[in-house]
């Protein structure tokens, strides 16, 4: 497709993205708003007479925690992939006895309210001494992603033609080789999907972080919000500023990842 013909699509794409991100814009707008103008009626559409007070305190207090968030996000992605991909391969292609029951349990596992999960983890971690640790938070965050990842991987891997598997088997590949060098590379799109969501969930998690990690020195950035939620008062411009500061590096990361992945896909890993 030539660049010229794609122009209308780009314009439409920009408009759609604009509509979709309007609430995000509004959040940014609030983050720059002075206390006195926050509930002005009608509201300011742009942060005229804005303040950077919120950002000043966020940049002063919260920046070190970005690293923790990144570590937790990537750790969650890794753990999720390690646990989920083999399981999904088995469920989709190897017909394990009891596999459906397992799928059911996975479905049910996602219905346990996050707070109950957090309460359970609290009890377990207290005894293991894992409270306020990055590793503990990675494990807890991965519980949001693992059931999802297994089910998504299964749906994608079920789409791999059986002939491809048979061909590998005829070539003498064992189940592990077939999984590693056939199923996994073909499931690149599923891997991308799962990794993205595992990362997003871990990055924006609040429930686990506040239950399991609120006393530690290595807190994720989302908990920085608490710094601005007093027992009687909330500083909304700083809260919104924290969210903006927290989402910028992650957005950049996702854009880079998507470009890289898009390039990889078109270069032909999936063809044939």
């Amino acid at each position: 497709m030539t660049a010229q013909r794609s122009w209308p699509r780009t314009v439409l794409g920009l408009v759609l993205t604009g509509v979709m991100l309007f609430p995000v814009y509004w959040m940014i707008n609030v983050s720059f708003t002075r206390q006195g103008d926050m509930r002005k009626s009608p509201p300011n559409w742009f942060p005229v007479d804005g303040t950077v007070e919120g950002y000043r305190s966020v940049l002063r207090d919260q920046l070190p925690y970005l690293g923790t968030s990144l570590l937790v996000g990537l750790g969650t992605v890794a753990l999720t992939l390690i646990v989920a991909a083999p399981a999904a391969y088995s469920l989709a292609k190897l017909n394990p006895r009891g596999g459906r029951a397992l799928s059911f349990v996975l479905l049910m596992a996602q219905m346990i309210p996050g707070i109950i999960m957090a309460m359970g983890f609290y009890a377990i971690y207290l005894n293991l001494g894992l409270l306020n640790s990055v590793a503990g938070l990675i494990v807890a965050d991965s519980t949001i992603a693992v059931p999802f990842a297994v089910l998504i991987f299964t749906a994608f891997m079920a789409g791999i033609p059986d002939e491809v598997m048979h061909a590998a088997k005829v070539d003498g590949a064992g189940p592990w080789r077939t999984f590693w060098s056939v199923a996994l590379p073909v499931s690149r799109n599923a891997t991308v999907t799962v990794s993205l969501f595992a990362f997003l969930w871990a990055w924006s998690d609040f429930v686990y972080a506040s239950t399991l990690d609120s006393g530690g020195a290595q807190r994720p950035i989302t908990l920085g919000i608490y710094h601005y939620i007093g027992n009687n008062n909330q500083e909304w411009n700083a809260i919104m500023a924290t969210a903006v500061v927290a989402s910028i590096p992650a957005t950049v990361l996702i854009i880079i990842a998507q470009r890289y992945v898009a390039a990889g896909v078109t270069s032909g890993a999936v063809k044939d």
Binding site: G36, R39, N232, N233, Q234, W236
Partner: peptide, 14 residues
């Protein structure tokens, strides 16, 4: 309104 929201309304001076 939470009490904070209500305060923000008052803080507009309106």
């Amino acid at each position: 309104n939470t009490q904070t929201t209500s305060w923000q309304e008052f803080a507009t001076g309106q």
